[in-house]
Nucleic acid binder design. Structure first.
Lengths: 354, 354
DNA sequence: TCCGACAGGTTTACCGGTAACCTACCCAAA
DNA sequence: TTTGGGTAGGTTACCGGTAAACCTGTCGGA
C-alpha cells in the first residue's frame, strides 16, 4: 500500500457513497434482499434464534459471510434496551501490577461470556470516578465494576437512577451499591500488626503514599494501628507521602521517617513496591533486616520474592477477585441470583524481613 | 438500603413503566417538553452548538440538570455515523507492567480528549486479535490501537472494509495499516549484541518465552544474533520456553540452558522479569555476575533497579508510545494530518550485570 | 369437514438521537 | 421600499436493528 493510500484510509474515512462502498458496509436489509427474505428473518438467523428452516438459515449465513457483514451492536443495543454487552470497569491505577492482575481476571471471564470492557482510571479520586461514570453511563453499559466503596453522592445518585448493576471490588464494603467481591484491608493491617507484635517489635512506623487518598491503604493502616494499640507499650509513627507508591517513594520515605524517629524497630509500608525501596535503603545504610529494623509490605508482588530475604507481606487474591466479580456480575445480568457478598482470604506471608 | 432492595436493584433492572420511572430516564423529548422547545434545540444546547438564545440555552440546561438527564451515546453514535467516542485497544498481556504503562499513557490522553477505551487482550495470539476485532468493530469504534504488526489476513480485511483508523504501536512496522508509533525491537537486540561483544563476551545464550509467539521478542533475538554474527568467534545458543515470561521462567530457564551449554559467558533474556529470575539462580548457585556469567534483560522494569547490581537492560518509551499513539489517533479523527510514523528511542542501560 | 397447533415466515412500530432543510422575524444597507 | 443576510428556532426523515403482532400454509386428529 502506497503512502498516499494510507493517508486516504486514515484521514478520509467518510468517502462518498459508491456501490463499491455500499457493498463494503452491508446491513440486515442488504442480506435480506440478497437472500430473498425479510430482514427480521435475517436478524433471527444471525442471533441464532428459532423460527426459520435449516435451508433459510444456511442461505442467510452464506450471504452474510460472502458480503462480509459486521454486526452493528450500536443499533442492536439501542433498539433492545437490554442488549448491551459493555461492562464499565474503573480502577484507581493502571500502572500497578495489582490492578493489572485484577483487570486480567475480569477480562478473561467477561470476554469468554461475550462482554466487552470499557476501562477507566480515576487515580484514586472519587470526583474523577464520578466524571468517568457520567461518560460511561451514556453508553448504557450492561454492568459496572468499581474499586473500593467510597463514591461521591453524585456518583451514587447516578448509579441509583441508571439502575445499572454494580460490583464493588477489592474492599470489605459496608454499604454496598450492589454486589461485592473483595477482602478486608483492615484485617490485612490488623494481621500484620499482631504479627509484628509477635516478633517482639513495638516501636512501629508506617509509610503511606498518595497523601491518604487511597482509602484501602488507610484502612490497612487503621487496622495495623488498632492491633498495635492492644499492647500498651506499642507506638506507631506515621509518614504520609504525597507521591505515588513506588520504589523510590519507599526509599526516601524511610529516610524521612527514621530521621524523625531513629528508634523505630519495624516499618509497615503502603505496599510492596515501597517496602522494597525501604529494604534497598536499609541495605545502602548497612542496617540489618530484620535484626535492626523490620520491614513489612502489602500485595505480594512477584518482585518481592526475588529479594535475598523474602519480604514479609500480605498476599491478596487479585486474580480471584477479578474472576469472581465478573462471574457474579454476569450471573446477575442473566437473572440468576449470585452471592451478594463474596469475601476472599488475604494471607499473611511471614517472610524473613520482620 | 435493605438487602431486599439491593437484590431488587441488581436483579430486576427492567421494572415496569411508572411515571416515577419515566422521570428517572429522561430523554431529549422530555427536556424539550419541560422547556417548551423542540428536541432539536435541546440537542443543539446540550452539544454546545449555536442557534439558540442565551435564555433558551439556560433554561434547557436547567431542565436537563433538574431531570437528571444522562446523554445516550448509543443513540448519538448510531444516528451520526461519525459520533462514536470509543477507541478499541488490544494488548497482548494485561498483567505485564509494560503494557500497564502503555495503557495508562493511552488512557490519560484519550480520556482528556473525550474518548473512552474498550480494551482487549489477545495473549500474543493473532487469531484472538481477529476475534476481538470482530466484536469491537461491531461497536463501530472511532479508532483502534493494536500492538505489533502481525495480524491474520482476516483481521486485515476486516480493518480495510471497516475503514476504521488504526494505530499500530510498540514495534517498527514495515507494512502499516495506518499510523504507527513505536521503536525497533531488532535494534534493541542488535544494540545489546554489540554491547555484549564490547564487554568481551562471545559465548552467548538466549532464553525466550511464550514459545516464540511474541513476535517482538523474536525480533529482539534476531537482532541480537545478527549483531553477534559480526564476530566470527561468537556463538549463540537458544532455549525457547513455552511458559509466560515471569521470574520463575527465568529461574528454571537458565538452569536448563546452562545444563546443556555450561560454557556460556552471557545470557540475554526475553525480558527483565526473566533476567531477574536468572540473576536469582546465579546467586543461588554462587555464580559471580558479570565475571562468571553476564545477564541482560529488556524493558527496564522498575524492579530491575532494586537489585544489588543494576541490571543491564534496555529502557523502552512505553508511556510516550501510549501518549503519542493517542495523540496521533485523535489528530487523525479530527481531520488533521498527524505523522504517519513515529519512531521513539529505546535506550540501552549498561548496568552492572554484563 | 373443520379446527387447532405449529413451523416459518412478514409487517409495523418503535428506540433517541442527528443532519438537512425550512421558516419567521428583525435589522441594516441599497 | 425593497432586498439580503443573520438569528433563533421548527420539521422531517432517517440511522440499523429488535419486539410484538400478525399472517399463511400444512398436517394431524376429532
Amino acid at each position: 500500500m502506497s503512502t498516499e493510500k494510507v493517508i486516504d484510509n486514515i484521514l478520509a474515512p467518510a468517502t462518498v457513497e459508491t456501490p463499491q462502498n455500499k457493498r463494503a458496509k452491508p446491513n440486515l436489509e442488504v442480506i435480506a434482499k440478497a437472500t430473498g427474505v425479510s430482514k427480521m428473518t435475517v436478524s433471527r438467523v444471525l442471533r441464532g434464534g428459532a423460527g426459520f428452516s435449516d435451508e433459510t438459515g444456511r442461505r442467510v449465513m452464506e450471504a452474510a459471510e460472502s458480503l462480509g457483514y459486521v454486526p452493528n451492536q450500536l443499533a442492536a443495543a439501542f433498539a433492545a434496551d437490554q442488549a448491551s454487552t459493555i461492562v464499565g470497569v474503573c480502577v484507581p491505577e493502571l500502572t500497578s501490577p495489582l490492578f493489572g492482575i485484577v483487570l486480567d481476571g475480569l477480562h478473561r471471564t467477561l470476554s469468554r461470556l461475550g462482554y466487552q470492557m470499557i476501562i477507566g482510571c480515576n487515580n484514586h479520586s472519587d470526583d474523577d470516578e464520578e466524571s468517568w461514570l457520567r461518560k460511561v453511563l451514556s453508553w448504557r453499559p450492561a454492568g459496572l465494576v468499581l474499586c473500593g466503596q467510597t463514591h461521591t453522592p453524585g456518583a451514587v445518585e447516578l448509579l441509583r437512577n441508571s439502575q445499572t448493576p454494580v460490583v464493588e471490588i477489592l474492599d470489605d464494603i459496608t454499604a454496598p451499591l450492589g454486589l461485592t467481591v473483595g477482602f478486608s484491608h483492615a484485617a490485612c493491617g490488623a494481621d500484620m500488626g499482631r504479627f509484628v507484635l509477635g516478633r517482639g517489635k513495638r516501636r512501629a512506623g508506617y509509610i503511606g503514599a498518595l497523601g491518604g487518598a487511597d482509602a484501602q491503604a488507610v484502612a490497612r493502616f487503621d487496622g495495623f494501628r488498632a492491633a498495635l494499640s492492644q499492647d500498651p507499650g506499642a507506638t506507631v509513627e506515621v509518614e504520609m507521602l504525597q507521591d505515588v507508591p513506588c520504589f523510590y517513594a519507599g526509599f526516601y520515605g524511610i529516610e524521612i521517617l527514621l530521621t524523625r524517629h531513629p528508634d523505630l524497630d519495624v516499618v509497615y509500608f503502603h505496599n510492596d513496591e515501597m517496602a522494597i525501596g525501604g529494604l534497598a535503603w536499609c541495605s545502602a545504610r548497612g542496617l540489618r533486616v530484620p535484626e535492626d529494623l523490620g520491614i513489612a509490605g502489602w500485595g505480594a508482588m512477584e518482585a518481592a520474592s526475588i529479594l535475598p530475604r523474602q519480604l514479609t507481606t500480605t498476599q491478596v487474591p487479585a486474580a480471584a477477585v477479578g474472576k469472581q466479580a465478573a462471574e457474579a456480575l454476569v450471573a446477575a445480568l442473566r437473572g440468576e441470583r449470585p452471592p451478594l457478598r463474596v469475601q476472599l482470604p488475604a494471607r499473611l506471608i511471614p517472610g524473613e524481613t520482620v
